[in-house]
Amino acid sequence: MAAVSGWWDDFFWGSLVVVELFFVALIMTVLFGLIGAGAKLSNSRVAKSIASGYTIVFRGTPEILVLLLFYFGSAIILTAIAQIFDPEIKFVDFPPFWAGSFAIALIIGSYATETFRGAFLGVDPGQIEAARALGLSNLQTFIYVRIPAMWRLALPPFGNHMLSLVKDTALVAIIGLEETLFVAEQAIAYTAKPFTMYIVVGAIYLGFSTIITLTVMGLERYANRHLEVWR
């Protein structure tokens, strides 16, 4: 472990990048999931088929492929646009952080789409009818009735999606983001201790997974607090 001593601060900054990536991608994931679920539950045939195309493609292809396609694909478009203004420019890329978080959010968002869809369908129709009868508008019904009821059903599978999300952030090192795996590679080039360094990365991720698992457990207890037997 002595070899790691000079690298703790780098690993710390790398972990911070993972945390940032996680939260940015998480927000986008929830967004994509809600949009996807909304489209799948809508009456529009076009929206439905776009949404099912989305879930089929992003759940059926390797994560690394989506990531590389987004990173290099966006780089080609950006370079082409930049060359219109200045033909000297050889390569412009989308920042790996944004390409990575967008790609990961699209992937996990496709899983979230199915989860949210199922959860919305699981809400008792009687509750929605009751909200209507009380004169709540569509938006109010959505915010005060549907979302809280659906959230309870979606939380356990969504916890698993969050675990996949944090683990997928490791892939972004492949396109050159300076997160923990990238730090480990630099440290290995310097110390020639690959086992030690990668174990540190594994331990960091295990820590993140543990935090997420505990948080989801807490959230589940909070979401179901009214169902607990009063003691």
Binding site: L163, K167, L181, P194, F195, T196, M197, Y198, G202, S209
Partner: peptide, 21 residues
């Protein structure tokens, strides 16, 4: 817990690049 809590990419790297150390 360990194998589900860490990225598969890290596991591959530990086994391929790490173990020969």
């Amino acid at each position: 817990y360990i194998f589900r809590g860490t990225p598969i990419l890290v596991q591959i790297f530990i086994i391929y690049y790490g173990l020969p150390q």
